[in-house]
Structures are given as C-alpha cells and as structure tokens.
Simulated scan of single mutants.
Amino acid sequence: MALLDTHYPLRQHNTFRFEATARYAAHVRAPEDVPAALADPRVQGLPVLVLVGGSNIVLTRDFEGLVLLMENMGIATGRSMVDGREVHTVTAGGGESWHGLVAHTVSHGLPGLE
C-alpha cells in the first residue's frame, strides 16, 4: 500500500534540483498503490502529479497536491499470433526509464521504440 508522506522534498525529482516540496507524496511500488493513494481522504480534490525519474520537469515552487512517485519496476515481453501475423507486446512498470526500456527492447530483438 502506498503510504502518504507530507511535505515531501522534490529536489531530487526535478531537472535543475530546485528546492520544492509536495504537500503529499506516495511511493508507488505496485499498480494497486495508485488507487490506494488516490482514495486517501486527505488528497480528495487536490491536483495530482505523476513523477518517474525527474528529468524534463522543472519545479519552481511547492506543489500543493499529491505527487505519485512511480517506483514500480519490471519489463515483460510477449508474442502472439493475430490474423496470421506475429505480434509482440511490451509491458513496463511506471518506474522504468524510457532509455532503459528502449535498450531492453533493442537487446531483445524488438526494435521500434527507439
């Protein structure tokens, strides 16, 4: 279950490492952590921000809502036949980096994401 931290520091979660805090933050380590965090009565009606690695985002002030810190990892690949054609699927946890996901697919002979 995702436990909510209050006044969570966001310095490590934004590109230029500006000082900022989140009113609430939840560490999402499994898919079921998202609805659990959103069901908390303290965050009802507040804005929600989803963060993974913290690149390509600049936080210049405190965030007065709930930040979901995506930490769930894992990459799974599969294949099946659809209408006589081989179809590949890739499922990735919300905490996976884009670069890591692309590298994984290429190394497994599944180009296309790059």
Rank of each mutant, 00 (worst) to 15 (best):
G54F: 13
L59H: 03
L10W: 13
V67F: 11
V48F: 07
A92Q: 02
G94N: 01
H27Q: 01
V50M: 08
D62L: 13
N56M: 11
V82Q: 13
D33M: 01
H88G: 04
L46E: 00
A25P: 02
G78R: 08
T60S: 06
V58S: 09
A76K: 15
E64Y: 05
A37F: 15
V28Q: 04
E32N: 15
E64M: 06
A22C: 03
V50G: 03
T60Q: 06
G93K: 10
N14I: 08
V87F: 09
G93P: 07
D62S: 05
A22I: 05
D40Q: 05
L10Y: 10
L46A: 02
G65H: 03
V52C: 15
M73H: 14
P47N: 10
V67S: 01
V90Q: 01
Q44C: 07
Q44P: 01
M73I: 13
V90T: 10
V28E: 03
E19V: 09
V43M: 10
L38R: 11
G93T: 14
T91D: 07
V34H: 10
T77Y: 00
D40S: 03
P9L: 07
L46R: 01
L68A: 03
T15K: 05
E71I: 04
T15M: 08
R61W: 01
A92K: 02
A37M: 08
V50Q: 01
F63N: 00
I75P: 03
A25W: 02
T60A: 06
D62R: 12
R29K: 15
R79N: 10
F18R: 13
R17K: 12
Q44M: 07
A20I: 14
D33H: 14
N72E: 11
R17D: 07
R29L: 14
E86D: 10
H88D: 01
V87G: 02
R79E: 11
G65N: 04
G84F: 02
